[in-house]
Design a protein around this nucleic acid. Structure first.
Lengths: 340, 340
DNA sequence: GGTTGGCACTCGGCACCATGGAGTGCCAAC
DNA sequence: GTTGGCACTCCATGGTGCCGAGTGCCAACC
């Protein structure tokens, strides 16, 4: 594919993408020659455009209109302009100071991140907190809420807090609970989710109140550490999308909005970002998701391999990719620093 | 105002509102006579319509069109049909069983409530968790996260969990933290936010590490109990709004979406619901908020006076009020039962 | 042979207009 | 007070014609 792209043809494509990103309107040969120094005439550009259309990088909405980049066209553009931060030093500085003021409680940091990212890009921010699966237990609290009810709170070494209610079959008084709590704290300290699973398997089912309570609490701890995923994803500034001209039609926004509202589905969308080293750009169909067909997704990881999360933005395929990529990168790096 | 409404005129208004809610199109005299047994001719209905328009209950978008209810028109309708659940016994049953399956951790209950309400009405659900101001402290955990960092977790008698990070000026080891934790648990158990404030005032500023750490932790506890409000509001199913024909114009949805995304602003909107005994209906301009000008808000309280929260739905002014009111009422009552 | 200007052609967008129909207000008759 | 009749208004719809942007093709040129 890319072999067919001689330098001038690539220059034409790049110019066309840039122009389309700016104007959001089909771009013609004349406009390109006028506004970009391509060093040739409209007629030549036209033949290049025809070739680019042949190769599938651009298309015409109708015969007498200009050209619009296809997903593959954007792809070439993105791969080409990969490097170089386009954020001003001032902007980067502003991001840093913004985080410095925070007391750094994890959910606060996530929320702030979402605000920062959407302010920076004007697109929808997506922030996923680190999964608890790879976190280590630092503290377990079992708080009685009634004769047969208690709340299990798990704190990890990362400062994450998860909690679950437990209902006991029999009355279970506060003394028992504090024994259970002490026992589990001794047992589970520093352990990860799969370790807890093994501990649970090691505890025999017995009739003793203490053991049964321990088992019930353990179940909830496991639930916290292994299955507590759906509320990990935070999306911010969906309203920003509506300002984009391509979402003038509410029918186009709805599936997207539904997806964004569904934390579990979003996690699925995010899942393969974890395996990518650098900032990942997925354009339109590359998302393999109907709701994301007309948008692009720029995402990056923060934190270290195991205990990291994801930040990203979702905007129209006609997004300002250099800026989006740079923003995601800076924010991800800043988060890594803060949390590391 | 209402004095001018003789029975037939009121019947005409009610029929018109019902018809408009169904058809979402201006309603004419003929349609009313055809579909509702008003016992008179179109001509008579026309004179009633003219009178209703005079009084401001309905209006014409243009001279040769049918009538549309104004906010005051809806108001009369709502006040009139106040009573009587329109939910089927099956639906009510379904709601109850749905909650029974839950393990009843507060945020799960809130999330589920949002899902139930939007499924029931097809409008946007709004759920506010009980404020922490009136909750009593049940447990405080102070978990070390580093030499100068710790996490403060507060659990209330209601099962709510709030947490804050603390940064200490000096290295503060785990022994000190567990002393502080024990001290505070003894001191603050059963206390509400204002009580904690007094305790804080009673602790003298000293150089002792323990006292300083205690003060820092106390500050965070206070923050949890008194200021932790912005994340209390949960909105669900915003995408449902986009399905409504009146939001075909994305310009109309944006301010609303922005409001819904802003927890603090939403709290302000909800604030006066707390003072209303029964389910509250606010129609269009009655919301005194530009973003809510074209929608209605149906909300009710759950839980008891002090430790209650709010549930509600937001939909177009042309909403199915009887159903919305009934849904909110049933859900609020169910929540009160569960949590009480 | 690649590049260029010229030219005929296509088609969407927009303004304009005519028509049909829904719904009204008024009025005279009951 | 209610009713049917009637003239009127104005929106929505669909058809028409024009303009302009942009193309593809081609012959000429360097």
């Amino acid at each position: 594919m890319a072999a067919e792209l001689n330098p001038r043809r690539k220059a034409v494509l790049t110019a066309l993408v840039e122009e389309y990103i700016k104007s959001v309107q089909p771009v013609g040969s004349k406009a390109l020659v006028d506004r970009y120094s391509l060093g040739c005439s409209p007629a030549t550009v036209r033949s290049e455009l025809a070739a680019l259309e042949e190769t599938g990088y651009i298309y015409q909405p109708h015969v007498s209109a200009g050209r619009i980049p296809t997903d593959s066209g954007y792809r070439v553009f993105v791969d080409d302009v990969a490097g170089g931060s386009v954020l001003s030093a001032g902007e980067v500085e502003a991001i840093h100071t913004r985080y410095e003021r925070l007391e750094r409680e994890l959910t606060d940091v996530m929320r702030e991140t979402s605000v920062v990212l959407s302010a920076l890009t004007n697109y929808v921010a997506v922030v996923a907190a680190p999964t608890l699966r790879r976190a280590r237990i630092r503290r377990i609290s079992v708080v009685s809420l009634g004769p047969r009810r208690a709340l299990v709170v798990v704190v990890t070494d990362f400062g994450q807090v998860a909690n679950r209610a437990v209902d006991f079959d029999h009355d279970t008084d506060a003394t028992v609970l504090s024994d259970v709590e002490a026992y589990l704290n001794g047992m589970l300290d520093g352990m990860m989710g799969d370790g807890v699973l093994q501990v649970r398997d090691g505890v025999a089912e017995e009739c003793d109140v203490r053991v049964r309570a321990t088992l019930r609490v353990l179940d909830e701890v496991i639930d916290c550490m292994v299955e507590a995923d759906e509320d990990r994803v935070l999306t911010g500034s969906v309203s920003a999308l509506l300002a984009q001209p391509e979402f003038a039609d509410p029918g186009a926004v709805r599936p997207l909005l539904e997806l964004l509202e569904d934390g579990l589905s979003m996690l699925r969308v995010l899942s393969d970002v974890m395996s990518s080293r650098d900032v990942l750009v997925r354009i339109g169909h590359e998302n393999h998701n109907d709701a994301l067909e007309r948008v692009s997704f720029v995402a990056g990881r923060y934190g270290d391999g195991d205990s990291g999360g994801i930040v990203g933005v979702i905007g129209p395929t006609r997004m300002d990719y250099p800026r989006a990529v740079a923003s995601v990168r800076v924010v991800a790096d800043t988060l890594s620093d803060i949390l590391g």
